[in-house]
Design a protein around this nucleic acid. Structure first.
Length: 136
DNA sequence: GCCAACGTTGGC
DNA sequence: GCCAACGTTGGC
């Protein structure tokens, strides 16, 4: 199983909204690297949900319920979507600040490639983050 | 609201 | 195929 992190601006689509919706189509990705990551997702992979701009923190865990297919919002065959469902809201959100001050997380894509909106997370990084969220 | 980082586009 | 110009993202 692989682990991922996706970013969303809360005013566009928040984790609370996902909890309400139970399931969402992760559309609008228009970056090749992020697209490749979407394509690499398998069913039941766990996805950290990060709020950018507002909050700047990881707020919850989601999982992949449907692997990639053509983005229905565009006719351009370059772009794909996946479907995500919420797993749980974190007991304690993990802020960018905390991630930055945690030595073992200094290599995480979130810091190294700030602009990427879908990125892989190493298993040990995933565990570290759950630790910070008091979920372990 | 500014600006740094970085991806994309287009001229040569 | 290089690189300058431009656009977008996201932290501050």
């Amino acid at each position: 199983m692989n682990h991922w992190l996706v970013k969303s601006e809360p005013f566009k689509y928040s984790f609370e909204q996902l909890l309400k919706d139970k399931k969402t189509i992760w559309d609008g990705v228009r970056n090749y690297q992020a697209r490749n990551n979407l394509k690499a997702m398998s069913k039941d992979d766990l996805v950290l949900f990060y709020h950018s701009n507002e909050g700047k923190e990881i707020v919850g865990i989601a999982k992949v319920v449907k692997t990639f297919y053509q983005d229905p919002t565009t006719a351009d065959p370059n772009w794909v979507v996946v479907e995500l469902s919420p797993v749980k809201k974190l007991k304690k959100s993990v802020t960018l600040e905390e991630i930055k001050t945690t030595k073992s997380l200094n290599d995480i894509g979130l810091i190294k490639q700030g602009r990427l909106s879908v990125m892989p997370i190493k298993p040990e990084e995933f565990d570290q983050i759950l630790g910070l969220a008091e979920e372990l």
